[in-house]
Write a protein that binds this DNA or RNA. Structure first.
Lengths: 360, 360
DNA sequence: TTGTAAGCGTTATCAT
DNA sequence: ATGATAACGCTTACAA
């Protein structure tokens, strides 16, 4: 039996001298091929454990790849496969809720081999457009978007759809757009907050809401109205205050409410940030919660527990929502079922705390 | 004068019929070239306003490019130029301070044509390693890192350096690493917090610190010690409590402090989150701030203003630090000056609030 | 002024 | 079992 001389190993040891020089840049398949005096296609096959590759060759290739710390060039692969394994995320801000959702998305995405690219629109429609363009230019494989409070037209969404790029909307979704959505049952959130305040004996509930066109805000208001109607309470249009989605505006709005002649005895703020703004105003007026006035927020941010009084708030399961969103996205990428009608709706849960708990 | 027939325009109108089909995928230079029956290189030149291109050709190319919504393929460019115009950011979490810093980085980066890719290490060294690898695989042009509280060895940093990839450390920096850094003067932060507490008449100051190996924490402690020495106060090792960088641990640590026989009359927490944990414990003990006990936090998060009592805190200029970090990064990319010794140090500023203000 | 061809790093197809 | 070649989209010498 003639001893088979391992040609490769022989040349290998010689080529190792170039190691230092080669490693200055990223090692490529070509480097390995040249060092081993074989073709790039063979190296490629060996690396991917293709069946039709000689045992010795495979070993030699893998050993050298290891030694040279070879990493496949993602750019080249992406160019070839026409996919970047990147998800573009556009969100209005990075507050507690959205940061938590992004963590959820990232966790699932990473598991599935995707990398996320997060852009903040800063609640500006213009920046949302710009970010869409940036991410489109970056050739992301798909989008996960929560629209800004300013967003009234959906050109960017349509542009994404016209290019047949997968898109999932979450949290702040748009209804008249045919894509999968992950959201909270905001109407129900409005219901439980309002019902709770009524249960605690409050009679005149004001709502500090977001901008007029903002879906999540309007849905929560809708739930609020429903419960008023159920309880035969005549709704008062003036008790719904729309303001920018930010603490300072809520503060101003609340001051006006408390100064007005028809002062409410409870406030339902459709986010914790707005609730905090309201709380500051309430304290300035010297009113006590829950005795003089009741307050319920939304999101169940950790700080609601820490404030004095602790603020009652509606939990929205941010982390789980993030994970669910990413899962649908991955499903979209991997199956060709039509998911455009899919809508996952999370159920809100009220955490009752001092700000509205009269013990009734 | 023979009338020059615009050959291009003639074929153009005919080719437009394919428009719909072409637009299903991204338009390429090749599409334009074929439609216009010219070569891709000419199209490339026309698009980039190269000097040696015929006027008519240029116009025709640009018109068609516009019509077909041509966007250069970033992948191809990146592969060619060996740069992705992407910055990899690794941070321990996305709390208020870091989210703010990231906004600062993003703002400057975007301006300079860079896109950021943000990875959270979740305060885990393991995830920091994984994220480094991910971003390295993604061929980011450089890194901006704030290390996790768990990070004790710096293999990943060394790996980045060995590949000669630009790196800037910010906020939680490592000292014995030769790269540009942007940080707060934490020693000074420790000084002003401690001096303020002494000025307010507190005698026994305890420090709720982060993990023992955490630089920012240790520097703040250092400042604390300095001021004690200046004031001829004998430092007490037992008054420095190290705990995980998280509210719950601070709560537990504070409970122990208050239960112990040598109860402090003031607490300097080296982050607002820790301060909040401390505050909850203090309240549970029925102690009043600032009368019975003083409390100072660090970061000047907006909530410090909203808590009752409002917490005194040291401002660290997060947004500006983010911007400065990105600026150095960009400078590194564009100049070949050696910036490895560069260190930008921001000065902290104390905001005095109820939790420690005895009006002295 | 325009076209040809090579190359960036990889894989797939087709030969051998 | 291995190699040559083309292709992904783009730029850039070099030729014409």
């Amino acid at each position: 039996m003639p001893e088979r001389v391992p040609v490769i190993s022989a040349t290998l040891s010689k080529s190792i001298h170039n190691l230092a020089r080669i490693m200055e840049r990223q090692t490529t398949i070509k480097d390995i091929a040249q060092a081993l005096r074989i073709s790039t296609s063979t190296v490629s096959r060996a690396l991917r454990d293709a069946p039709d590759v000689g045992e010795e060759t495979r070993k030699a290739v893998k050993a050298l790849a290891e030694e040279l710390d070879y990493q496949p060039n993602k750019l080249a692969l992406s160019l070839l496969n026409k996919q970047t394994n990147t998800i573009g995320i556009i969100i209005p801000n990075l507050d507690y809720v959205l940061a938590t959702m992004v963590r959820g998305i990232d966790e699932v995405a990473l598991e599935a081999g995707y990398t996320v690219m997060v852009c903040q629109s800063d609640e500006s429609f213009g920046r949302e457009m710009v970010n869409t363009k940036r991410l489109l230019d970056s050739l992301v494989d798909g989008f996960i978007i929560s629209v800004s409070s300013e967003t009234r037209v959906f050109e960017h969404i349509k542009k994404i759809q016209s290019k047949k790029i997968p898109l999932v909307l979450f949290d702040r979704v748009i209804d008249n757009v045919n894509v999968p959505k992950v959201k909270l049952d905001n109407v129900e959130g409005g219901r439980i907050a309002t019902q709770h305040l009524l249960d605690q004996g409050y009679k005149k509930i004001a709502v500090i809401a977001g901008p007029e066109n903002m879906n999540v805000s309007n849905e929560r208001i809708e739930g609020h109205y429903e419960v008023l109607k159920q309880n035969k309470i005549k709704p008062d249009k003036n008790a719904i205050i729309h303001c920018e989605f930010n603490q300072d505006y809520a503060y101003i709005a609340t001051k006006e409410l408390l100064t007005g002649k028809n002062r409410p005895d409870a406030i339902f703020a459709i986010s914790d940030r707005l609730a905090i703004g309201a709380m500051i105003a309430i304290k300035e007026f010297g009113l006590k919660m829950p005795k003089d006035i009741g307050l319920v927020g939304f999101n169940n941010e950790p700080i609601t527990k820490l404030l004095t009084p602790a603020i009652s708030s509606v939990e929205m399961h941010a982390f789980e929502m993030g994970k669910a969103t990413a899962k649908i996205f991955i499903e979209m990428m991997h199956s060709d079922a039509d998911l455009s009608e899919k809508e996952i709706v999370f159920k809100p849960k009220l955490f009752i705390r001092e700000s509205s708990n009269r013990g009734l």
